[in-house]
Amino acid sequence: MSEEWQLSNISIQRDLQTGAMSTAVLGGESLITELYRAHNVWLFGWLRKKLGCGSDAEDLTHDTFCRIMQKGDIGDIHEPRAYLTTTATRLMIDLVRRRNIEQVYLEALALVQTEAYDHSPEHYREAVETLNAIAQMLEGVPEKARRAFLLSRLENMAYAEIAMSMNISVSMVKKYIAQVMVHCCMASYAQS
């Protein structure tokens, strides 16, 4: 069951069972309305300049305010435009990265041609979402460590094989893999 909130031209869905958005709506309706009225045109302009595309900018303006409502801590914003651009930047990076991943994954997948593989659109979408989440998780990991980890996890290569292909020691491979796993767990906590 869900309830829809109309806010100028933003509509926000609220799940009545989980009440996920109740704080933002109950405690901050006038504040977010104010925020929206004061800055939505400016944010749209800022996004259009960054993205060079009006329809993407429109979507992301909408998504930015939705995201802020979901967070529900409207009362604490001191620099509204800095706050909006921080949220919008996160969403832009997400959008561009997802498109990159989508393109590269699908192109590479076309070359694999395994019979056993599920080529349904649902599967594609799911894989792209998963890869996007993984890319976000791996952000900030040094290149070599990431490579060692991915060779192990994705290609299922043995440590000795990875060591040989990367021209590093086996103990370094182990160290890299452990380091990336710790980073990923921490990143998951930071996101949740």
């Binding site: 990159n100 991943i101 590269v104 395994t114 894989a127 998963t130 993984i134 991915l150 996890r153």
Partner: peptide, 17 residues
Amino acid sequence: FDGLQPAPAMKALEVAL
């Protein structure tokens, strides 16, 4: 990482990151 095609996933992540 389960269920991803290894080579395409590897390439997509390398490019994205």
